[in-house]
Design a protein around this nucleic acid. Structure first.
Length: 148
DNA sequence: ATTCTTACA
DNA sequence: TGTAAGTA
């Protein structure tokens, strides 16, 4: 159904927008990641809910568990009043930062390996074309960035 | 036509 | 998470 207002969404709208199923969205709610309001029994999502869903999906892409993601949300809107809670949260944040730094390093390493593999592919293709005595096509020529 | 809950794979 | 069932 089409909603007159621009700041609320039906579950279907969000599912279409993000290319996920209704089941997933309800599942995330079950895990406490989403808290849509209700008009009767029907879920009504606000822009903030939409933003939250977006963050959830990004977290998933990064390999975070739904629990990890809910923990991040707690950090974002942290309302811990006492000192110990703040201390614990800080430690948790530092830990998460460390994990991300590690991921970043791993990503860089894999990226370099892939770049090397890609370079070899182009070199091989160039060699084949040379054997066939054919002119290098634009599409298969070695990109400048791989010359180094 | 859409969405909801519940239950099982 | 997918899917089926039975509703509202």
């Amino acid at each position: 159904m089409k909603m007159e207002s621009k700041d609320t969404f039906s579950i279907s709208q969000l599912a279409d927008e993000f290319g996920i199923t209704l089941r997933s969205i309800r599942f995330y709610e079950d895990r406490g990641l989403l808290t849509p309001t209700r008009k009767g029994k029907v879920r009504v999502y606000s822009k903030q809910d939409r933003a939250r869903l977006k963050l959830t999906l990004r977290g998933k892409r990064l390999g975070f568990s739904l629990i990890d993601i809910s923990e991040l949300f707690e950090f974002y809107d942290s309302n811990k009043s006492n000192k110990k809670q703040q201390q614990d949260m800080l430690n948790a944040i530092k830990h998460r930062q460390q994990l991300l730094i590690q991921q970043q390093a791993d990503i860089n390493a894999v990226m370099m390996e892939l770049n090397a593999a890609e370079r070899n592919c182009y070199l091989q293709l160039a060699k084949f074309e040379q054997q066939n005595n054919k002119p290098l096509s634009k599409r298969c020529s070695i990109p400048a960035k791989l010359h180094r």
